[in-house]
Design a protein around this nucleic acid. Structure first.
Lengths: 164, 164
DNA sequence: TATTGTTATACTCTATAACTATA
DNA sequence: TATAGTTATAGAGTATAACAATA
């Protein structure tokens, strides 16, 4: 549970009276799923950012690009539902991805309010590139959880679907 | 007073050609621990916010209050390490908690740069109250994961500690 | 020199509300 | 009336950098 940057760890070892560094009691917090969920997600997210920071990989891009790649013609609304976020959060992402020529839109025949999204050739290349980073990152997670990965994903998915 | 549960689901059930609502393929994303971690944490966080919004329960308060309660005399720096966030993020939280009379500071005898934190009687009451909300929320999570709670927490903790 | 706590600043992710153009 | 997409605004959570005081 240390900082992200260097490895200057060196237990202060003073601890005159009050609870110091490593010996803090988590107490009731330790039994909360929500607490551990937050810590783990945060740690994972920061590690991911760190690892891909140099590659112009916005954390929000990969999931969107990947979903479009697997669902050519998908609409922004369907995308937002699949990604579990509000449609308004997608607008800037899609604008960026379009500006970078990773994504194109086609008008939808039956509904002029909407439009279908798909990857350009460039977008496909970009996705491949980003997927390599994501895979490397997730590989670390895979190693940490080992053979219990299936259980973990099943539980997380259940939380996503049923919490409310 | 305003209920936040509109609950106006309305399955569109049209799906002419492109991937619509529920039938989106997650594709590669589905195998990523990081992806499910993010979705689950987000869903859980929002549910928690929704449930406790009326009670003036800032999501960031409970963990801090709880940690101080379990570690009287803890310093802000130790607190930040225990909570896994930067010390600068604690300053405003502690200011609020102090302003509300939930937390007090005592000077530290051996180190005049720092100070020890502890709960006031009011803070202890507040913590009890917040803990009830948190417990209710986490109870939902408990039910979702069932008997595999221990496994889940163990895996999450391992991720928190080892990712990097 | 290193650490504690504070301040200033900024970025990401996300949400709600209001608006348009359709449907 | 309801939905799709956009815009504007807001808030939570977090980070980094620089600073003064102290170690």
């Amino acid at each position: 549970m240390e900082q992200v940057a260097p490895k200057k760890a060196k237990p202060a070892r003073r601890s005159p009276e009050p609870p110091e560094a490593g010996e803090v009691r988590l107490g009731a917090l330790d039994g909360y799923i929500g607490y551990h969920l937050r810590l783990a997600q945060n740690a994972s997210f920061r590690a991911f950012q760190r690892k891909s920071g140099g590659a112009d990989l916005r954390p929000g891009w990969f999931a969107v690009l990947s979903l479009i790649g697997d669902n050519p013609g998908i609409t922004p609304a369907a995308l937002s539902r699949a990604a579990g976020r509000d449609k308004s959060t997608l607008t800037p992402v899609l604008r960026d991805l379009t500006k970078h020529q990773y994504v194109t839109s086609q008008p939808r025949l039956g509904d002029r309010r909407s439009y279908g999204l798909s990857l350009t050739e460039l977008g496909r290349e970009r996705l491949t590139e980003l997927a390599a980073h994501a895979k490397a990152h997730d590989h670390v997670l895979d190693e940490i959880v080992g053979h219990e990965k299936d259980i973990l994903i099943r539980l997380l998915r259940r939380i996503t679907e049923e919490v409310g």
